[in-house]
Design a protein around this nucleic acid. Structure first.
Length: 421
RNA sequence: AACCACGAAUUAUCGUUC
């Protein structure tokens, strides 16, 4: 089977899952009793990466009937695909199925769950799984710690993140570039640049080299503080180290410049990127669109929006949000609505940014009632308003003299636990 | 015995000349 596994892996690596599946069936035809869950797991993972979850499941069922029992790795592949699709309802079912089969979660299962929950802003649930794995004596490794540190950083729980970092060292684990990267990035986002630089030193003294990703985090931290000079210094360090600036570096710097209203420099930077032959992504195109919107050049924004699609780069919800906001601020509410419909056609869900921009636009152009309708719609869809949403509505209502409603909304906002700032 | 399957870090979008 060993040589067959190597072959299966190479087929999967080449992206030809069908051939992989075919060969797997061939292996079973020739000598089913020599095929193990190892081979099955390789094919299942291949199918899952292509999003073919149903086929992966039926392959597992079929193999099970032939005496090849799917193991936890097969289930991890399925779980990974479901989590990528944001399908947590099925994740729960899958976990129950594993339980029923008596399959225990391994450390990779816990990493998938902890990471998936963290990315959905459910760190508390991630912590529950972290506790569960300790209780079941599945030793958390660096992957788990890195996910936990990252999740807590993103939830603003920097103390917890730092404690986890210390804890993993106490356990004898050696933080690697990703572990340091997660913490340094968290510190940068929290505006704690001195602490971030200290971690960087600590990292280097522990024999872990700086890499591009970490430098990009630091650049982003400086950009958020408006310290473009320091950001550019980091850029010089990147180049001195022999790294190339990548599309992350460029879009970070461009958005930093844009926020300082230095839109010309921002645009120039993205042109430099193009000239260097770095390919545009959804993010870089969106940054360009946003820059044009902020300049009030909506026709240029639309031109880029079309260009990206011709280039085969798909717009994301963020792309639409940037454009919608641009049109709303200009008072082209009709155009904004059209984009919203187009979003729907592309199966992109309107999020809190979409609604807040639309609400704000309607409120400042004297259509507060439409704003309230949109507000009702977002609540219906389970989109949670933020302080920004409420501010737009409340100021719109007050301006029209509808102060009773404004106060009502204010009270509702307080009830939701939001504090005015 | 060793080896081979699954998991972790960076960028874009909303209010505040009250």
């Amino acid at each position: 089977e060993r040589s067959c596994i190597v072959f299966l892996l190479s087929l999967r690596k080449s992206g030809d899952v069908e051939a992989c599946l075919h060969f797997y069936h061939h292996m079973i035809d020739v000598c089913a009793d020599k095929v193990s869950f190892y081979s099955l797991a390789i094919v299942v993972e291949g199918l899952c990466r292509k999003g073919e979850i149903e086929r992966a499941k039926s392959l597992m069922n079929g193999s099970s009937g032939k005496g090849i029992k799917p193991n936890v790795v097969c289930y991890n592949s399925l779980l990974g695909a479901l989590i990528r699709n944001g399908n947590f309802a099925d994740v729960t079912d899958m976990l129950l199925e594993m339980d029923a089969l008596g399959l225990d979660k391994n450390v990779a299962t816990y990493t998938l769950l902890i990471d998936g929950l963290s990315k959905r802003d459910q760190v508390a649930d991630a912590e529950t799984y972290f506790e569960e794995m300790m209780r079941k004596e599945v030793e958390p490794d660096l992957y788990v710690y890195t996910s936990m540190i990252d999740g807590n950083c993103k939830a603003g729980k920097m103390r917890r993140a730092c404690n986890l970092f210390d804890e993993c060292i106490e356990k004898g684990l050696k933080p690697n570039e990703r572990t340091y990267g997660a913490l340094i990035n968290g510190l940068c986002k929290a505006g704690q640049m001195e602490a971030a630089l200290e971690m960087l030193k600590d990292m280097q003294s522990n024999g872990v080299d700086v890499n591009q990703i970490i430098l990009n985090s630091l650049i982003d931290g400086y950009c958020r503080k408006g310290r473009l000079d320091d950001a550019v210094k980091m850029q010089a360090i990147i180049e001195k180290k022999g790294f190339e600036l990548d599309s992350y570096t460029y879009s970070t710097l461009a958005s930093g410049l844009c926020k300082l209203k230095r839109t010309n420099e921002a645009k120039k930077l993205l042109f430099v990127m193009e000239e260097k032959g770095i390919k545009h992504t959804t993010v870089t195109y969106t940054a360009m669109i946003n820059i044009s919107c902020k300049e009030g050049d909506l026709s240029e924004a639309k031109r880029i929006f079309h260009k990206m699609q011709i280039d085969g780069v798909p717009p994301s919800a963020v792309t639409f949000n940037a454009l919608i906001d641009g049109f709303c601020k200009e008072g082209s509410l009709k155009e904004a609505q059209t984009l919203r419909d187009e979003m729907r056609k592309k199966n992109l869900a309107a999020d809190v940014f979409t609604y807040t921009s639309l609400i704000h636009g309607h409120c400042i152009f004297g259509k507060v009632s439409d704003g309230l309708n949109l507000f009702g719609e977002m609540l219906e869809k389970g989109v949670v308003p933020t302080i920004v949403t409420y501010t737009a509505l409340i100021s719109g209502l007050s301006k029209e003299g509808r102060s009773d409603e404004a106060f009502q909304l204010y009270d509702k906002m307080i009830e939701e636990g939001l504090t005015p700032d």
